[in-house]
Simulated scan of single mutants.
Amino acid sequence: MTLTIPTLLTLFRIVLIPVMVAVFYLPYGWTNIAAAGIFILGAVTDWADGWIARRYGMYSAFGAFLDPVADKLTVAFALLLVVERHDTPVMAMLAAVIIGREITISALREWMAQMGAHGLVKVAALGKLKTIVQMVAISCLLFEEDLLGLPVFRLGEWLLAVAAALTLWSGWDYLRAAWPTMRRKG
């Protein structure tokens, strides 16, 4: 197996997860900003690995498998950190919706691939929008502090609610697209 630059970036994203968690729990006042920075670095490398793969044709089966795994792990761990620090029922519910949808759609994609209908559950524009809103929301929630008078955490809460709504909507689209195959091949 040859490791391409996009795959190396994806592996780097996975390595950033325990670093983000460790930094988050350090006993210093700046750790929220550092954890947000690490999360943002991961989001930028996610964009970069996709761009490089498309631009230079650096696709690999391993990279195609690993990229969504890295995305889901990063989002899940970041949301767990946010909920741990801000353990409200609303925050827990929003995180549960997002994490639950990611697990469900991953399982659906795997099952559809086994059915020979993987093309029906490809990432759509709505899913990309959901991802962007989700990444900005989580960055704001990890950052926590006001910035130039902007209530960053409050903005993150609202954006996470929007991301959860987009998550449900795009999840519904995936299920609706897969439904005919699910009914036929039960």
Rank of each mutant, 00 (worst) to 15 (best):
L81M: 14
P180K: 02
S106Y: 02
W179T: 13
T7Q: 14
G42D: 06
G100F: 02
I5R: 14
R13W: 05
L79W: 02
A165G: 15
F62V: 15
L126R: 06
W51M: 01
G63P: 00
Y28D: 08
T31R: 14
L41C: 11
T74Q: 15
Y174H: 13
W47G: 01
V75T: 11
M182C: 09
L66G: 00
V19T: 10
A161R: 07
G171T: 07
V162S: 02
L129Q: 07
T7C: 02
M182V: 15
R85D: 14
M1K: 10
G50Q: 07
W172C: 06
A164Y: 06
R55I: 03
I99L: 04
E102M: 08
K128L: 09
A164D: 08
L159T: 07
M20S: 09
G100D: 08
V19N: 09
G149C: 05
R13N: 11
A35R: 01
V97P: 02
T88E: 12
T88W: 05
I105A: 03
W172S: 06
D49N: 03
G100T: 04
E157T: 13
V123H: 03
A92C: 03
T2E: 13
L160F: 05
A22W: 15
F62I: 12
T10K: 01
R184L: 15
L41T: 14
M135Q: 11
L26W: 00
T2Y: 12
L79N: 13
M112Y: 02
F77E: 08
V152G: 00
M135T: 09
F153S: 00
V19L: 15
L142F: 00
M182D: 04
Y56M: 03
L148G: 07
L148M: 13
T2V: 11
V121T: 15
W51A: 03
M135A: 12
Y174N: 10
R176P: 10
F62K: 03
T10A: 05
S139T: 13
L9A: 05
M135G: 01
A43I: 07
V83P: 08
R85P: 04
F12D: 06
